[in-house]
């Protein structure tokens, strides 16, 4: 686009070309893996061993170290997908399409994790596996939004059209997420069941907060690793007869 300075747009076009991106991903992956372990190991140790048990919930609260980061990631990835969708629609950038569709299963995975761990946490706290709590309900609807993206992409044969379709859908979804969130919140206060206890964390102690933030960082880096792996596959799938794929095959042979 003309309103972007030429050197920057050149940089983006170079980085966004599939062979360049493929080698860049290969260079980044080892570093990301190291960073991931550096965040994950102290995060798990701090959360599962160092942090004291909660005075009300005992050790069951330790699910927080995966539940809350997973719930954050589920929203974060959807917003990121919408940003990619916007870039894909405006600048017709293939790499943004690839990143968008590679993110969808990972985001759906995090949403599923947030739901299942929320349910596993709820059983000892509420005495039942499922409560129509505002956050769990919003998370469930978010899962449906993710499934809509993946099944629409799968249903459209021509993958260029499919990418445009899911870009539009991701943008529509991201506008709706806050509306859905607040409507569910309102609905929840209206139909409050007998179990009022929520998974609220009033003021979280620093020894619990640090591992939580470390785990959140670890999940972010995990996403970067997983999305690069998925994007590498998607790039080859899209243009299996391109010259750079042939070069890649010769390197492997």
């Amino acid at each position: 686009m003309s309103f972007i300075p030429a050197p920057i747009s050149r940089f983006f076009h170079r980085t966004a070309s599939p062979p360049h991106f493929y080698t860049l991903a290969d260079k980044l992956l080892p570093w990301l893996t190291v960073l991931f372990l550096l965040l994950l190991i102290p995060g798990l140790y701090g959360g599962l061993v160092m942090a004291p048990a909660d005075y009300q919930q005992g050790d069951s609260y330790r699910i927080i170290y995966i539940h809350v980061p997973a719930a954050w990631m589920s929203l974060f990835i959807y917003v990121l997908m919408a940003v990619m969708g916007g870039i894909a629609l405006v600048w017709r950038m293939k790499l943004a399409e690839v990143m968008l569709i590679s993110s969808a299963p990972i985001g759906a995975g995090f949403t599923l994790v947030a739901l299942v761990t929320g349910s596993l946490w709820g059983k000892p706290m509420w005495g039942t596996w499922w409560v129509w709590d505002a956050r769990l309900t919003s998370e469930l609807i978010l899962l449906f939004l993710y499934l809509g993206v993946t099944s629409l992409y799968g249903a459209i044969e021509d993958k260029r059209s499919a990418a445009r379709a899911v870009s539009i859908l991701a943008l529509v979804g991201v506008v709706n997420i806050p509306i859905i969130h607040y409507s569910v919140e309102w609905w929840n206060t209206l139909h409050q069941g007998p179990t009022v206890s929520k998974m609220d964390k009033p003021s979280i102690h620093i020894s619990m907060l640090i591992p939580l933030l470390l785990m959140a960082g670890a999940f972010k880096v995990y996403y970067a690793i997983a999305v690069l792996q998925a994007a590498k596959l998607e790039l080859i799938k899209r243009e299996p007869s391109a010259q750079w794929v042939k070069n890649l095959l010769e390197q492997n042979a």
């Binding site: 050790d59 069951s60 330790r62 699910i63 995966i66 539940h67 997973a70 590679s102 299963p105 990972i106 995975g109 995090f110 599923l112 994790v113 299942v116 761990t117 596993l120 946490w121 059983k123 000892p124 995990y222 690793i225 997983a226 792996q229 998925a230 590498k232 596959l233």
Partner: peptide, 20 residues
């Protein structure tokens, strides 16, 4: 509850990483 949560999380994350 705790170990099932961590186990399921591990399974989902590993699947999304290694399937591609």
């Amino acid at each position: 509850y705790v170990w099932t949560s961590y186990g399921i999380t591990l399974a989902v994350l590993l699947w999304n990483l290694f399937a591609p």
